[in-house]
Design a protein around this nucleic acid. Structure first.
Length: 274
DNA sequence: CTTGGTTCCTGCGTGC
DNA sequence: TGCACGCAGGAACCAA
């Protein structure tokens, strides 16, 4: 499942390839993935546009186009983007193909088809609520300790649920939240407001650490994620708890437990996460 | 303000 | 070997 480090890896890899490319044609195999505008309008607007640069905000990819327009892609669970020569065999579940002016294509493939594509004028980007209302991201100046302290203060909600809320912090998903909580030694069900100042500081640092490590390792390939060339990341070899049910904790050797918290499968060490 | 449930979707693991 | 079932979960949405 692509979270901030996976989407950033894709962005870094695709950016130099798609920047400057003109979109000569688009093949829409599964129209319902185009959430806005309707497919006919989408086609009419995007043909002939050039990609000026590729940006990312949280888990969204932003294709900045000529004519002050932006195409927004969210990969959700199993979405993938591939930059491939037009004469190569298409990957399974390829649903939308952007044909460039240089013999290459950008292909959107998605096994579960939960991913979304939108095309908007820059002035109407506010229509994408998840983007517009997104909180600050780890590793940015806005996500400082003071912001994080205020975020947790007096909150009764479980810390895991709070960390997953994109309106509060942008880009975290299930894997990196579990990793952050383990690194900081905090149980996922702790009420957010119950964390001590030291715990808040440790967790803040842990979030930045796991996100930085995730990016350095080219993302986590737990099941489906691959980058723009179809290559797996390597961070799965560095996971501390996620997916390690009944395996020994890397810190204390206690068997890792799995439990549903905030509606998500959650892994934690019952010994070092209190 | 909050939390919890539902929906979307399909490959795969499990159990019989 | 085959089949039914339920799980995986990001985010929008709704109800309480």
């Amino acid at each position: 499942m692509p979270e901030l480090p996976e989407v950033e890896t894709i962005r870094r890899q695709l950016a130099p390839k798609v920047a400057g490319r003109e979109i000569a044609a688009v093949e829409i195999g599964l129209p319902r993935l185009l959430k806005y505008p309707d497919p006919a309008c989408f086609l009419r607007e995007i043909i002939g546009k050039r990609i000026e640069k590729l940006e990312r905000r949280g888990k969204y990819l932003l294709f900045r186009l000529t004519g002050d327009m932006t195409m927004i892609i969210h990969l959700r669970m199993t979405g993938r983007l591939f930059y491939r020569a037009a004469d190569t065999v298409r990957d399974a579940h390829t649903h939308v193909v952007f044909v460039f002016d240089n013999g290459f294509e950008l292909r959107f493939a998605d096994m579960r088809t939960l991913g979304t594509l939108c095309l908007l004028a820059d002035t109407e980007l506010g229509k994408i609520k998840g983007l517009h209302e997104m909180g600050p991201e780890p590793l940015t100046a806005a996500f400082d300790l003071k912001y994080f302290q205020q975020l947790l203060a007096n909150k009764k909600t479980k810390i895991k649920g709070l960390l997953l809320d994109q309106r509060r912090i942008g880009g975290l998903g299930n894997i990196y939240v579990d990793e952050s909580l383990h690194l900081a030694g905090i149980h996922p069900e702790r009420p957010a407001g119950s964390l001590s100042p030291d715990e808040i500081s440790n967790l803040h640092q842990a979030i930045n650490t796991v996100i930085r490590e995730g990016i350095e390792h080219g993302g986590t390939t737990f099941r489906d994620y691959v980058d723009g060339e179809g290559k797996a990341g390597t961070h799965q070899h560095h996971l501390r708890v996620y997916g390690r049910k009944q395996e020994p904790c890397v810190t204390c050797g206690t068997a890792i437990e799995r439990k549903e918290v905030a509606g998500r499968g959650s892994y934690y060490c019952p010994c070092c996460q209190k």
